[in-house]
Amino acid sequence: MTTSPVPARLIKWLLVLIAVVISLFPFYWMLRTALAPQSQQLADGLGFWPSHLDFGNFARAWNKANLGQALLNGLIITGAILLLQLITCVPAAYAFAKIRFRGSGVLFGVVLACLLIPTQATMVPTFIGINIFGLGDTRIGLVLPFYSSAFGIFLLRQQMLSIPDALLDAARTDGLGPWRTLLRVVVPMSMPSIAAFAVFSVFTHWNDYLWPLLVARSPDLATPPLRLAVFQQADIGFDYSALAAGAAIVTAPILILFLFAQRRFVQGMAGGEIAG
């Protein structure tokens, strides 16, 4: 790290550059395709930038794929899931991290086991159950299976473990009671990890494709990725310009969220300690 010889540093930078190019290339290609006129797609070849810029692709994608509705659906569903997950996971994580109670070991073992159960083991019965209760093809059916999150409990607990016990003793002698302790001490102190988990949850459920594909049969309920997938299978399948524009529209909100929340997210996932 101190004084590597020049060739070593050059090689390092070269490798980093290659990685960055590969990592960013699909995004660049998406924008390039989305901005080029449809007719120019094949003619432009490998040129770095399209010969003409054409924003009509975005309008075409927005209208034909009805992306406005899809984005709204995505927002409602992702928001509802996030809210429910925070309400269920934060208290549970606190109890697992800081309260001794009979059965906590077994219950937390269940949480860990659930972390490892893949979607395919649960997909079929969950789908049948949702249909039995008449929730297939409803917003509730899209949200309900995710109202709790084993990963959320796990991640938040991990961070809450680092809250000093003395602070919780102080809360007890201050007479805060379990709910006030949770809301006034534990939650403010766990903000970094709560933020990290929130970002994670939004990523996961905004981007989720499998479950909406099963449940949201009517086009009105489609989430952005589902809408886009249907769009590319339909008649417009070879209009890559419109598809790329649609992809850009679907990707943008999460990308922007990530750029804003990056520091918090990375810190939270890194198990960053609580300031104090």
Partner: peptide
């Protein structure tokens, strides 16, 4: 009341993963 608190805290979350992860895996 004090003894029940942790169970009240974990119950909603555990019901969720019980109903939508554990039970479906078993049913599957």
């Amino acid at each position: 009341r004090t003894r029940a608190t942790p169970y009240v805290f974990v119950a909603p979350a555990m019901s969720g993963i019980g109903l939508f992860v554990l039970l479906p895996a078993l049913l599957s």
